[in-house]
Amino acid sequence: MEFTLLFAALSGVATAWLAVKLLDRSERQLIPDHTFELVLNAAVIGVVVGRLWAMIAAGTNPISHPGDFIVIRGGVDPLGASLGALGALIWTTRREGLTALDAIAPVALWGLAGWHAGCVITGSCLGAASSLPWALTEAGSDIGRHPVEVYAALLLAAGALMLVRLPVLRPGVAAALALLVAGAARLITEPLRLSLGGGRTGLYVIGVVVAGVAAVALARRDAARAIQNGSPPERQ
């Protein structure tokens, strides 16, 4: 059995749990158990959708080969996983609205950072060759490499920290910013990853642009309404 993904997932869940506990002590509106449950549900559904997506993309029929599903190191498609997790979050918070997504946003980013940092446990941090002083080498090799997953984890953690330290924003803006940070962290690190076919840079560009436009639109929505009503915009 392969434990790579399992360790990464456990690392992500542990980091998200820690973030919930720490944020609970801050001034943010957060219901700890509920938030953690929502993030965990989204993560599980994301992994399931991502795995099915990867199987179908690889030409394996999940109905005729159901056992292949558990060969998890065979791949979890990041696009499918992202769409699955986002869909699950939107569905489960549909009655609570955008403010619930905003509360979850930094926790989800911490969880993603933990997922990437899990590479330290699984020994899968390395990317393209590098001669920088902090480059790491594969066991038995003398070729230095970028610890690209650590870069991604640091970018995501910085994004989560930024979201926590920002003043309370208008509904939906924090969630859109979290999507922007998640997309940007992958976009920036993608050229340093070892992948076939040039990676998914195009998709990450689209993700970052869509999230950026959504953040700006949501931030300006209430302001525009307030101008129409002749009163200053209310903050959440």
């Binding site: 060969v71 190191r73 791949g75 393209a128 594969e138 090799s141 070892l194 076939l196």
Partner: peptide, 23 residues
Amino acid sequence: VTVHAGIIDERALVLGIDEITGG
């Protein structure tokens, strides 16, 4: 010869190829 026992993922496969082609 470097051995990778068990299923290989994209990252490990490209890393292995990168190593034997000199990075």
